[in-house]
């Protein structure tokens, strides 16, 4: 394989506007994404970052494409694990598409190198984060396992 890539899809009974807000609003992200606050610039070329609850920057990068309620592409580098940080920037794509009563959210996390440790590491978390996001938007409650920053991280 010339690169490392995971693709995730979830269908959420919500509107593209609410889902978009859930992806970029720090008050919202901390509820389903292990207490982390996501700060995302509203324009292309701007910065974005994930803040851990202890004040460290967990991940950061640049907004590569932004089309509100439809598409967001970010460059993404881990900032707190040296062996992941040294791999440099990966690319994350969110695509939102209305399908009937739901919004189809596609998440693509990829890096242009084989066997990326960063992609392998985040792939263990993504399915839980997305299941939790769906649960929060549909029922008002996230999954218990994603409500705390993991101990020792």
């Amino acid at each position: 394989m010339a690169n490392s890539r995971f693709v995730y899809v979830t269908y959420i009974r919500t509107t593209p506007e609410k889902l978009w807000q859930a992806l970029i609003d720090p008050e919202f992200t901390q509820r389903y994404w292990c207490e982390t606050r996501h700060e995302v610039s509203s324009h292309k070329g701007g910065a974005w970052r994930i803040m851990a609850p202890d004040g460290r920057v967990a991940d950061s990068g640049e907004v590569l494409e932004i089309e509100p309620h439809r598409r967001l592409v970010l460059s993404w580098r881990n900032e707190f694990m040296p062996e992941l940080r040294e791999e440099g920037f990966s690319r994350l794509t969110y695509e939102l598409e209305t399908v009937g009563e739901s919004v189809k959210l596609t998440v693509i996390h990829e890096m242009d190198k084989p066997n990326s440790k960063l992609i392998a590491t985040v792939s263990t978390g993504w399915p839980h984060i997305l299941a939790s996001l769906k649960s929060l938007l549909e029922t008002g409650e996230p999954l218990e396992e994603t409500t705390r920053w993991p101990k020792g991280f």
Binding site: R5, V7, Y8, V9, T10, Y11, I108, P127, A131, S135
Partner: peptide, 27 residues
């Protein structure tokens, strides 16, 4: 069933295992 996600890269249709529905069931 949303257990496989598909994306196009050029003319290639690529298939990916999508574990999100399994996590929802387990939870």
């Amino acid at each position: 069933a949303n257990l496989v996600a598909v994306i196009w890269r050029g003319r290639e249709k690529l298939h990916y295992l999508n574990p999100v529905p399994i996590v929802e069931i387990a939870d």
